[in-house]
Write a protein that binds this DNA or RNA. Sequence first.
DNA 1: GAGCCAATGTGACTAAGTCACATACATTCG
DNA 2: CGAATGTATGTGACTTAGTCACATTGGCTC
Lengths: 225, 225
Amino acid sequence: MITDSQQIDRIIDCFGFLRRKDPTFKRHFFQAASVVHLDKPQSICHEGMSCTHLALVISGTARIYKLGENGREITLYRIGRGESCILTASCIISNTPFPAIAVCEEALEAVLIPTAEAQNWMSRFPAWQEYLFGLVSERLAEVITVVEEIAFRRVDHRLAAYLLKRAESDSSRVIKVTHQEIASDLGTSREVISRILKDFENRQAISVNRGSIDLLDIQALSDQL
Amino acid sequence: MITDSQQIDRIIDCFGFLRRKDPTFKRHFFQAASVVHLDKPQSICHEGMSCTHLALVISGTARIYKLGENGREITLYRIGRGESCILTASCIISNTPFPAIAVCEEALEAVLIPTAEAQNWMSRFPAWQEYLFGLVSERLAEVITVVEEIAFRRVDHRLAAYLLKRAESDSSRVIKVTHQEIASDLGTSREVISRILKDFENRQAISVNRGSIDLLDIQALSDQL
DNA sequence: GAGCCAATGTGACTAAGTCACATACATTCG
DNA sequence: CGAATGTATGTGACTTAGTCACATTGGCTC
């Protein structure tokens, strides 16, 4: 149960579906909700885990990924403010085990809703139901994009796009990231990333330093796409 | 509008959510529904198309796939009896364009529901809402499996698994399929499939003929996994 | 049987992934 | 300070996958 009115305002700010004129739902929501904090290298859900709570992210980010037998990883998607680990939601609704791994990436603050309530509200509150459905749909589209990328696009092109996107979202020309992290995001191996980065560097498009990459020539990278 | 009581029974048989004791929903459903037939090589949805109807499959199958720039394809999933093109559903709910291509594979018979009704029922009839949500969740899980496969597993292993699964679902040792079809399902190119098949043949696991493959040694194929 | 088309075969080449290391840089600790 | 340790990166040799440009084959029509 959450009672602190300041915190309630913050949460409503985050989750648009609470802003509707349905005081009943709002009451139920804050009645059942609790807030948790998770720190950086913490695992949230394991493969095959059945979920007891649904987590709605207030701040921070989590990364949802698949782990291959060989130890390689691939990021399926990330979730941030206002979103929710919808795989959890999906498991909740369809009672299937969680098919991936979720870890906290930037320190998380989240609202926890017990599975039973989350299910119950689905049929009682349209706002809640729309919220969850919208999230699953969005994830489905995102994961389909991932399929497309790994099935058809060359790694060097994907890498160039990755660097550009990263730079944009950090609004900085230098990106703090290791080759291994990139490889895990793109679903390839570290050596492959290192080699392509070296190649970009030889062509003066970037400068590679330990733990960071400086985008020297945005245009050259864009041309790679 | 569907009135033929025999047809209504058939449809109820297909879609469990109609079996509940909610006569209101049933009435609305058959009021808004219409039945269509689609033949084999027919396109259902194009990339980026916005969907005006939701199709619930009574019989036949459809294949949902992505098309790469280079002309290669990869199957995301198939839908059959009792299922629905949930990407369509997802588009309906979240109002995003359709991110893939759907084609009829075996002659389809389907119930069509106009978008507006499908959306409206979401908040009015829990059975409907559960049905749709369950489908999207299932697809999400399936597509995640596809990601895992193409990101981590070797093509020869995937091919062996494909052949075994195919033989099982057709309950026949010989599979009627071209190399190109397999390649399109697995998201690789025809040459790769041809070569691996030839390799399997050299090892006496299968026998390759024009348009069909005979699984001679199931055990040998299973060992590939 | 000639002609045609879809299905399959093939070699040479590029791209990607694997494996087994070698280096290099940064931080801590004696 | 310099050594020790651990993470990050570099590299060569090799296998697997994907591409390209064709050659061949089997089945069909006329």
